[in-house]
């Protein structure tokens, strides 16, 4: 147990350090922008106003509001202090809503969509990959190239194809939004039904994408394990093949947990874009509207939130992995 505490401590330290770096990058990068963001916003808001002094007045007000008149380091601490209190300032494009308000209303949608979709895709992909490795014949010649091909369809492409086939042509499921556009979110059967039917297409397109990549990886991992010495040895001790296959899949599956931890950042990227295609009211769509309307506090906050989500997921997976795989335990816990 002592070893585990050490492992946990080490991982936690990494988590904190990475988190700090992420926050700093999140703060610095937008500020390296060649153009003064406040000036460009002022220009946009001032619109046709040609009164120079009025424009200057607006500019000053914004400068104060965003604190760009302060030195960099002071700005940073202010940014951190506010961020801890969940205060990311006001949104430009959806003025006078606050950024944290916008994010609060979209983050739930993203988590509810992506977490189950990625996990289900991961699980199904692993099962299919394991089966493929076990059955081998036939699969390899026909299904593997198909699986490889499907695995290379980009997430947004799969989203568009699913949308067109099931939404536009077959009209099985609605094609955009998180719920019917004429509804106001509230707790009722009709609303929940609407949410579920809107959930289908984004969910399955992310699932299918995750399956492709996982299945191919799991297949080669399982083939590798099937040739391991312990398989032969267990067979010669009279253990049933079915039981041995169980060993193999467990051993092949465990490294896939790391695979999930490593790829979750990439997967989220694809899944966010899938959200945009379906106009799903999550962070992806929020980010898109922030980008198109140059809403710079909102972009900064969404990227930060996404980073934190990925960091937490990776951290949790690392911890779980260390706990369930004795190979890592032996190597890391000492």
């Amino acid at each position: 147990m002592k070893g585990y505490r050490k492992y946990f401590g080490k991982k936690l330290l990494w988590f904190v350090v990475t988190f700090i770096v992420a926050v700093i990058l999140n703060f610095i990068l937008p500020r390296l922008m060649p153009a003064d963001p406040v000036a460009s916003i002022t220009g946009k808001l001032a619109g046709g106003n040609s009164d120079a002094s009025a424009v200057a007045e607006i500019y000053k007000r914004y400068q104060k509001e965003f604190g760009t008149d302060l030195p960099m380091i002071q700005q940073f601490f202010r940014f951190c202090k506010n961020a801890i209190h969940g205060n990311f300032g006001l949104s430009f494009s959806q003025y006078p809503r606050s950024v944290s308000n916008i994010i609060a209303s979209s983050i739930g949608w993203t988590i509810a969509l992506q977490l189950p979709a990625i996990l289900v895709g991961w699980l199904l992909g692993n099962i299919l990959g394991a089966l493929a490795a076990y059955i081998r014949k036939g699969y390899d010649k026909v299904l593997l190239p198909i699986a490889l091909f499907l695995g290379n369809v980009p997430a947004f492409g799969m989203a568009v194809i699913m949308l067109v086939i099931f939404g536009v042509y077959l009209k099985i499921a609605p094609i955009s939004g998180g719920y019917a556009f004429d509804m106001i979110p509230h707790l009722s059967w009709n609303f929940i039904k609407s949410v579920i039917s809107h959930y289908q297409l984004p969910f399955w397109s992310i699932v299918i994408i995750s399956i492709g990549g996982q299945a191919v990886g799991m297949r080669s991992m399982s083939i590798y394990e099937l040739n391991a010495d312990y398989v032969k040895y267990s067979r010669f001790l009279g253990i049933k093949d079915r039981k041995i296959v169980g060993y193999v899949f467990r051993n092949a599956m465990l490294p896939q947990v790391t695979g999930l931890a490593m790829s979750i950042g990439t997967m989220i990227g694809g899944a966010l874009v899938a959200e945009i295609i379906f106009s799903y009211p999550g962070l992806g769509s929020t980010m898109y509207s922030a980008v198109t309307s140059a809403d710079y506090p909102l972009i900064s906050a969404t990227t930060l939130i996404i980073t934190i989500m990925v960091l937490v997921m990776t951290f949790l997976l690392d911890i779980i992995y260390g706990f369930i795989d004795p190979r890592v335990k032996a190597a890391q816990f000492e």
């Binding site: 990475t18 990068l29 950042g265 990439t266 989220i268 990227g269 980073t307 990925v310 960091l311």
Partner: peptide
């Protein structure tokens, strides 16, 4: 490796 490249 941990900070998602897409966000960066």
């Amino acid at each position: 490796t941990v900070i998602p490249g897409f966000v960066l």
